[in-house]
């Protein structure tokens, strides 16, 4: 039973309940993201011709990401990619034993996300990620430069936050519905609620696929790749900082 974005099924007594998201949307999302990113790439290619050179990576370096945060990022990245791959594999007909890898990756993701939330609240500059009214003006005024994170970066972060939390919460609810070394499964959740959980997990998965693809695209773009380097090495050059950030609003330590 397919209807738009939702798939339905019969519950044990024959009533129609939600089964989950329609996986046809996976292809819709894939195509849409590809088209949008391709369009962006073309527009940027035209713009780059008119723009000045990239700032130099040489010179003094400032610390953008601490080691622990870089580890967090890459563990999260790997677990999300594994989750996406293992989640999508059976949908596209790959016969792989995906479920254990999926929930182990999910547990790792959950753990690092919880870690990140706690760390960001108490040990990091949480304010630097807050989206304020000023941030919304940023894209329309080239004079306005961001603090540590640009509007796009904050947007991406919060989008990923919302989607990841949704996928994690629904994932945990699904996790308790399967047999694990820690417990035997139950059918304690009413079937209509179970369907809703599957739907939200599916929708957030689709969003995550789109976000992950976009994130990777921007991370690899020439004008942004220094951020990716900073996620590997921790630093950006002062010149890069000056070109992209308002130093009055972000004063990082010097990198080691």
């Amino acid at each position: 039973m397919e209807e738009g974005i939702v798939r339905y099924r019969r519950d044990v007594w024959g009533e129609e309940v939600i089964l989950g998201v329609s996986w046809d949307l996976l292809w819709v999302v894939a195509v849409a993201v590809l088209v949008l990113l391709a369009a962006h790439a073309i527009v940027m290619a035209v713009l780059v011709n008119r723009k000045m050179d990239k700032p130099s990576a040489d010179g003094r370096r400032v610390l953008r990401h601490e080691t622990i945060d870089r580890w967090f990022h890459w563990i999260m990245a790997v677990s999300i990619l594994l989750l996406i791959f293992t989640g999508v594999a059976p949908i596209i007909g790959l016969r792989v034993a995906w479920l254990e890898i999926h929930w182990i990756s999910g547990l790792i993701l959950t753990f690092v996300v919880v870690f990140h939330i706690i760390r960001s609240l108490f040990w990091q500059d949480f304010k630097s990620m807050i989206l304020g009214p000023r941030d919304f003006g940023e894209p329309f005024d080239s004079a306005k430069k961001p603090g540590k994170y640009s509007f796009e970066q904050k947007g991406m972060h919060w989008a990923v936050t919302i989607v990841a939390l949704t996928v994690i919460v629904t994932g945990i609810l699904m996790f308790v519905q399967i047999d694990t070394p820690f417990w035997d499964r139950t059918n304690s959740m009413p079937e209509d609620q179970l369907g809703l959980v599957f739907l939200l997990h599916g929708l957030s998965t689709l969003a995550l696929v789109a976000l992950a693809a976009s994130h990777m695209y921007f991370a690899l773009r020439p004008e942004k790749i220094f951020y990716t380097r900073s996620m590997l090495t921790g630093w950006i050059s002062e010149e890069e900082m000056a070109a992209n950030h308002d130093t009055t609003r972000w004063s990082p330590k010097e990198a080691d």
Partner: peptide, 16 residues
Amino acid sequence: LSCYRAGGNICYADSP
């Protein structure tokens, strides 16, 4: 029944 094997999202046999 619309169980996992039938494309659903539940198993009725493996439960308490």
